[in-house]
Nucleic acid binder design. Sequence first.
DNA 1: GCGCGGAATTTTACCAGCGAAGTGCATTCC
DNA 2: GGAATGCACTTCGCTGGTAAAATTCCGCGC
Lengths: 168, 168
Amino acid sequence: MAEDVVAGVIRQWEQVLPGLELAPIAVIGRLNRCFALLQQAADAPLRREGLTRPEFDILGALRRTDRELTPGRIARETFASGAAVTKRLRQLEGRGLLTRRLDERDRRVAHLSLTADGRTLLDRLLPEQLRYEAALLEGLGARSQAQLADGLGELLVLLEGRLGSLVD
Amino acid sequence: MAEDVVAGVIRQWEQVLPGLELAPIAVIGRLNRCFALLQQAADAPLRREGLTRPEFDILGALRRTDRELTPGRIARETFASGAAVTKRLRQLEGRGLLTRRLDERDRRVAHLSLTADGRTLLDRLLPEQLRYEAALLEGLGARSQAQLADGLGELLVLLEGRLGSLVD
DNA sequence: GCGCGGAATTTTACCAGCGAAGTGCATTCC
DNA sequence: GGAATGCACTTCGCTGGTAAAATTCCGCGC
């Protein structure tokens, strides 16, 4: 079995500063690297359509919840800051992928929904994107994949819970 | 066992667009979220010292390889673009954490190394950072943690190999 | 009803990173 | 030896992100 970069890094540390508890690197370091590589690799189909991953996430959130969402809700749904969402909405609205409807009762809030174009684009792009991602993960084998998904799920629960308590 | 956000997302998709192969989301979607949360949470000790994670990585690369490195080497070692490294080096050099020595044979290249200050800072910060990360992961249990590290390692090997071939 | 607290969103100012172009240098090849 | 090629690094212009302030508005308490 080939060795990944991080294993080498860990060995270096052991040699230079022995006695450290390096286990976190094995998880967090690898996670960081995987993310960096995936970001480069995994969004190719999106980029062909001129979409970034966060933009795609917004379209996806609208599609899968299957109703209008407010900017604030989208921000929470996609783990993004309000300001970032504002910019992305403007961009997507400009491309005609979604529309904005003002609330009559509370005029601070807007309700966003996919246009026909936006919906068509997403419905075409999502399966393509999923196939592409599946191809990337192919070498893993179903078993490892499920195991990895489980582990990440546990971690996610943990982090979601812990955020705010340990943050300092 | 509590459920993570992504499980909910997957269920939504199943309901709205049944028949899609959603397995990749279980891995890649979770990985993305974990990364986002970790980035917020895990770098608190670094930020207290006014360091970003990529800057810390540079200091770490110099410390653990235990010799001078060129900017290019650092870029490869830390998975960053050349331009990004240039900026970070300037920053770190300005703070007196590392020094630049010009090569005499080839005056294009510089050799960077930690100053005493930089080394002291890293040697103090690294254990602190590791303890902090360990605390974040604590709830996982050693078994899950090792399993997760393994899975991520496999994935990393896969991605390292595949990059360049599938990128389009 | 009127003002105040606070919420939802946008705007502003700024910073980090990227790709591409630029600079300076070594080396190769005639 | 001198042009040509190509490398190591930096600079430049731009895009996209954030934090904090500004804007707009609701609804409560008096």
